[in-house]
Design a protein around this nucleic acid. Structure first.
Lengths: 158, 158
DNA sequence: ATAAAATAGTTGCCTTAAACAACTTGTTGT
DNA sequence: ACAACAAGTTGTTTAAGGCAACTATTTTAT
């Protein structure tokens, strides 16, 4: 896409402060820049939801379907179906907890790790293209600006 | 949602540069922070695509269905249906060009402007909440950091 | 001047995304 | 033991969005 397809609404009224409008402008700019939709899943065999679920299973120790459903606010049935699809494709596996046989822990397989690496590499490549022509000085400024934003916004946990 | 539902994949390998990884970290952080999915359309009667199309019609003079389709990389048929729905709801209207009767210009109505304002106000409110506890000094730093990022990334048009 | 190609938009049909609700199986508290 | 609850599953439905065939104009090439 040649422009933002998200976060592209501009102020329709006049009630907002200048700061809010500047931040909204940045939001539009930045979400456009990183191509939020296509960053991970464009051209990949996994939907965004599937990629998110694979990632979370990889990150999370003893991940369960219930956790995924709550964490992403996805319907339990939807999560269940995605899990079963990913198991069929052997990118994750399911192990029943011995102390409670309702609970099934989800683990990424070796094959799943490879698939995740492909997704992550694709995202890295997109980022790399975004910054390829930036010189060292500006690169430092860019990173510092990002770290500053994270620091400031992190304080008031939101 | 209590966490990011987009851009949440982390590096699965080790081939990427430190800068790329830092930027990906910022991407995850920031897309989580602004709640990309819910910023405009959560609790609204319009889907994200509908809101985007209304916005673009409002911004663009002499907007056409073809422009919308190309701009957003949406299917023509999908756009056509959304347009007809929005016309039925009287938030936009359609006027045939007199020099070419295939072309139909789209305009936002007064009612449409009001609806857009509701969407924009909701987004502003979300941003306002995000920054409500930030003091003046940090606020300036935040805005400057954002402007710096825009400036640096804008140069190499991406 | 007219047939052919291109353009704008519409409509039918299909696939996938994702929610809702009812259900099964297993666990816990009384 | 059994009611209430918790983890997942499955059936069904709606919405998002793409593909392809179509109509109706306009442009281009003969």
């Amino acid at each position: 896409m040649d422009e933002s397809i998200v976060s592209n609404l501009k102020m329709a009224g006049t009630g907002s402060s200048n700061h809010v409008e500047k931040i909204k402008k940045f939001n539009r700019f930045y979400t456009n820049m990183i191509g939020i939709y296509t960053q991970y899943t464009d051209g990949s065999p996994y939907s965004m939801s599937e990629a998110m679920i694979m990632f979370e299973i990889d990150q999370m120790d003893k991940c369960t379907a219930t956790h995924l459903s709550e964490y992403f606010s996805f319907d339990k049935g939807y999560v269940s179906r995605i899990i079963n699809k990913l198991i069929k494709e052997k990118v994750i596996e399911r192990v029943s907890a011995d102390f409670d046989r309702r609970i099934k822990y989800l683990h990424i397989t070796e094959r799943g790790k490879k698939e995740l690496k492909i997704l992550a590499d694709r995202a890295s490549e997109n980022v790399r293209r975004m910054i390829e022509d930036i010189d060292n000085t500006e690169m430092e400024t860019l990173i510092q600006s990002m770290e500053k934003i994270e620091e400031i916004l992190s304080k008031n946990h939101s």
